[in-house]
């Protein structure tokens, strides 16, 4: 059996929504280089909808695939829905991850939640 599902390999080899949004109004960064995983999510939120999302990831194949899948799952979605995204949903959408790689999907969930917190903070400041 291969290390990763076909879905994971597809998102790893052809990651969706890679890059930076220069005028993002919500940015979330989680993980640390010491542990070998950092995820950064850039969101452009308008009318409580994620109009655009991009990511940058330093990490293993499943970290890149989890980031890619998570961005696809929230793009165009209302914030109420985005806030409920779980790592379990990301893992399922990827047709599963090896047990020791589940933390990659957790990072994806955390990166999105961290971006939403950043958005709220900016709203309050404005």
């Amino acid at each position: 059996m291969a290390l990763y599902s076909e879905k994971v390999m597809d998102h790893f080899l052809h990651p969706r929504n890679v890059g930076v949004i220069e005028d993002a109004n919500a940015i979330g960064e989680v993980g640390n280089a010491k542990c070998g995983d950092i995820m950064k999510m850039y969101l452009k939120i308008e009318d409580d909808i994620v109009k655009d999302v991009k990511f940058e990831t330093f990490g293993c194949g499943s970290a890149i695939a989890s980031s890619s899948m998570a961005t696809e799952m929230i793009k165009g979605k209302p914030l109420s829905e985005v806030a409920n995204l779980t790592n379990k949903a990301v893992t399922e959408a990827l047709d599963g991850l090896p047990a020791h790689k589940i933390h990659c999907s957790v990072l994806a969930e955390e990166a999105i939640h961290s971006a939403l917190e950043d958005y709220r903070r900016r709203q309050e400041e404005a």
Binding site: E29, A33, E56, F58
Partner: peptide, 12 residues
């Protein structure tokens, strides 16, 4: 290496 650095926040 150059491809992966292209979207690595650490490299940025």
């Amino acid at each position: 290496v150059s491809y992966l650095r292209g979207f690595s926040p650490v490299w940025r």
